[in-house]
Design a protein around this nucleic acid. Structure first.
Lengths: 245, 245
DNA sequence: GTGAGTTTGTTCTCGCGTTCACAAACTCTT
DNA sequence: AAGAGTTTGTGAACGCGAGAACAAACTCAC
């Protein structure tokens, strides 16, 4: 839900005139399922680490925190990789999901904005372990340029276009302040980046064919605050809150 | 969608026998709408900064990156805060949304796990500016305990229960490694925390009435990778990818 | 005051996602 | 080999959210 697939209401949906009825043709996996596949993948890795070679949909569903019917339906979009009466081969399913997501190949990634968050992202082990290779760190602050971080030297923002093209980068991560986000985004897109992960608290506008996913930490907390407030009200301690309209 | 409202299939849905038909009673705002309210709030703050006092649903929708019909429907769940023929008063609407979300009051927050990410979160300005006050930082690594960060001293994990109770903390942030996440979660919940923001790549199980939202950085990238792979395939450069099944 | 223009709030329809329930397909015991 | 027990894959029902479209309500010009 934090994603903007511009192809949905853009070029792809208008459809090439003589093409196949979309869903069957492109093996279209529902967006909600796509968002869960990485969770299943992580659960399967955990099972592997525990030395478990086979699992039922019930086992895997529990490990992934979903119900088993949903899991089976999700997997059915990929193909029939299970065996009735037996379950799923952990290694086999793991590979199939990894292949479907695309993490069997290596994805070069650039991170723009090396503040607190960018710093953390550059050092984040979860990226490299899952097929993502940080190939460049960029920042506009001259005080940061040249410093080494996570085995890379921080480049000035002027180098953005060259670095993206040189490493054939398709995925860019924006961790700049909100004010700089749109400009950085435009430059990334102009250089050939077609997927953006945005941590800046700003709405990005991108051309059709470019995907944006956003992660906004304060929004997550605000959603929790909403539910927290409602819990407090539901338990009758409303007087303390003092919102007098 | 990254949220687990255990009340959905838990106590609340079973319904107190003599209670009111739920939706009307609790002014139940759809989850999808709740997730967008903070975005509207941010957009309104931006408009205020630009000195704009009134805006139409079209203006605000553009600033928030949604379409205007959706915006109006979302706002209608809160009440009728606009004026037909005129639009919305920016300040007034801003306050109403803030009140509805609950960010007019102050929310004490603890952060557990002061690694790279926890470090960044502790320094994140977006929290304090939106009604969240970090009251404690916790880490199990003795090397980090005692160090100062963002105006706070890092406490050892043994102090978790006391700190949560002392500050009456309802919201906890978990930024530990995956292996430690469930134990930390259990301790937070046992101490009275009822909302958890989880950055650890692990599925947390919590009792009914506790909300969990998860942010998984590598999952976001994997979702982008999936779409990226499909774009590559759609443009016929499939040969390069070399996934031979 | 009246009519033209504007903008909100709401109704209606459609599609997606979730869940239930069951047939198909496999293993294992006897 | 046949039946009992398991587990997958899927058809169907249902509920929620998105978007279009329109009526209600306001402003402004004259």
């Amino acid at each position: 839900m934090t994603s903007t697939r511009s192809t949905r209401d853009g070029a792809v949906d208008q459809g090439v005139p003589g093409s196949i009825p979309s869903k069957a043709a492109d093996r279209g996996i529902p967006e909600a399922t796509v968002a869960r596949l990485p969770v299943y993948l992580r659960a399967l890795v955990t099972l592997t680490d525990q030395g478990i070679a086979t699992c039922s949909s019930e086992n895997l569903a529990t490990a992934a925190g979903v119900n088993s019917a949903k899991l089976r339906k999700d997997l059915s979009y990929l193909g029939s990789y299970g065996t009735r009466g037996v379950g799923y081969d952990v290694e086999y399913l793991r590979y199939q999901i990894a292949r479907e997501i695309g993490v069997t190949q290596d994805w070069p990634v650039v991170i723009v904005g090396i503040g607190n968050l960018g710093h953390a992202l550059a050092n984040y082990a979860g990226f490299s372990s899952r097929g993502f290779r940080v190939v460049a760190l960029l920042d506009s602050d001259p005080a940061r340029v040249g410093k080494e971080l996570a085995g890379l030297q921080i480049s000035g923002s002027a180098a953005l276009e060259d670095l993206v093209r040189e490493h054939d980068v398709a995925i860019g991560v924006i961790a700049t302040p909100a004010a700089a986000a749109q400009e950085v985004c435009d430059r990334l897109v102009a250089s050939g980046v077609t997927s953006i992960l945005n941590f800046a608290p700003a709405v990005l506008s991108v051309p059709d064919g470019v995907d944006v996913r956003k992660v906004d930490l304060s929004i997550e907390l605000q959603i929790l605050a909403y539910h927290e407030q409602r819990k407090a009200l539901a338990f009758g301690s409303a007087a303390r809150l003092g919102d007098t309209g």
